[in-house]
């Protein structure tokens, strides 16, 4: 097993860490949600890349037998994407309501307002 056969995981890790950086560093709530989405996509890529088979093709059965990639991760991620957008929408809705209540979506400004009252 050569070490460069693992490059798919490294791409995933880099994307994941970019997402994590945005979540940790950014104080803006909507930017945090964007960061979470980047993180989420990296997990999708992780699953799909595990399902990939060398020389495989898309798992739609054909007349002559061929080797297919793993359909199970596809099913999981397919539903996860749609669930992901639904939960993202919920998060954004919360951010919109927070903006309505505080007039800002910056974390530290919200904290300031909280401590003064």
């Amino acid at each position: 097993m050569e070490i460069f056969g693992l490059y798919n995981y490294w791409v995933v890790v880099v994307l994941m860490m970019i997402g994590l950086y945005v979540v940790v560093a950014s104080g803006n709530l909507i930017k945090k949600i964007v960061g979470l989405n980047i993180f989420q996509t990296s997990v999708f890529i992780l699953y799909i890349s595990i399902g990939k088979l060398k020389g495989g093709t898309a798992p739609i059965l054909m007349e002559d037998p061929a080797s297919y990639s793993n359909p199970l991760p596809h099913v999981l991620i397919l539903t996860a994407i749609v669930v992901g957008v639904a939960t993202t929408a919920l998060g954004l809705a919360l951010a919109v309501r927070i903006y309505g209540a505080y007039g800002t979506i910056e974390e530290d400004e919200i904290e300031e307002q909280e401590s003064t009252t």
Binding site: I33, F44, L53, A58, H74, V82, A93, A95, V96
Partner: peptide, 29 residues
Amino acid sequence: MDAVDVAFTEAAVGAGIATILMLSALALT
């Protein structure tokens, strides 16, 4: 990576609906 069904969903959701929802949220904040 052979996941055609997933690609379908991601293209419609990520590039379409998620972006529009985020833009709506930006317009409101």
